[in-house]
Simulated scan of single mutants.
Amino acid sequence: MVLELFCSGDSLFPGGVGNTQGDAERFTSLIIDVEAKLFNELPDETWVYPGHGSDTALGKERPNVSEWRARGW
């Protein structure tokens, strides 16, 4: 079994992407990057360690991306 780990800094947290201070343009840029560079490239088993707070796995967060887009944060 290969365990994949990823340190996401402040880009991905349990429940959403990083804080973009309510700036719609910054949010759009960040979520596009997170989808392209994480969700589209790494398997569900990849464990994510944010810059602070709790850790998570891509498989746990992936189903929520459309909800994050809809809420805009």
Results as ranks from 00 to 15, higher is better:
M1L: 14
L3W: 10
L3Y: 08
L5Y: 11
F6D: 07
C7D: 14
C7E: 11
C7V: 05
S8H: 06
S8C: 13
G9D: 15
D10N: 13
S11P: 01
S11E: 05
F13C: 09
P14Y: 01
P14T: 07
P14H: 00
P14R: 01
G15S: 13
G15H: 13
G16F: 05
G16E: 04
G16D: 07
V17K: 01
G18N: 09
N19G: 01
T20M: 09
T20P: 00
T20C: 15
T20F: 11
Q21I: 03
D23S: 03
D23R: 14
A24V: 14
A24N: 02
A24D: 08
A24T: 10
E25Q: 15
E25P: 02
E25S: 12
R26P: 01
R26K: 15
R26A: 15
F27M: 06
F27G: 04
F27R: 07
F27W: 07
T28R: 14
T28E: 15
S29D: 11
S29E: 09
L30H: 00
L30T: 01
I31S: 00
I31T: 00
D33L: 04
D33F: 04
E35P: 02
A36W: 00
K37P: 02
L38K: 10
L38C: 06
N40G: 05
N40W: 05
L42W: 14
P43D: 04
P43V: 07
D44G: 15
D44V: 13
E45H: 11
E45D: 14
T46W: 00
T46H: 07
W47C: 06
W47R: 13
V48I: 15
V48Q: 03
Y49N: 06
P50L: 07
P50C: 03
G53L: 12
G53T: 09
S54P: 04
S54N: 09
S54L: 12
S54G: 06
D55F: 11
T56Y: 02
A57W: 12
L58S: 02
L58H: 01
G59A: 10
G59Y: 05
K60P: 00
K60S: 04
K60Q: 08
K60T: 08
K60W: 04
E61V: 02
E61G: 03
R62P: 00
P63A: 01
N64T: 07
S66G: 00
S66C: 00
S66R: 12
S66T: 14
E67H: 08
W68H: 00
R69V: 14
A70D: 14
A70P: 03
R71V: 13
R71G: 02
R71Y: 03
G72W: 06
G72A: 04
G72N: 05
G72K: 06
G72E: 06
W73V: 05
W73R: 13
W73N: 08
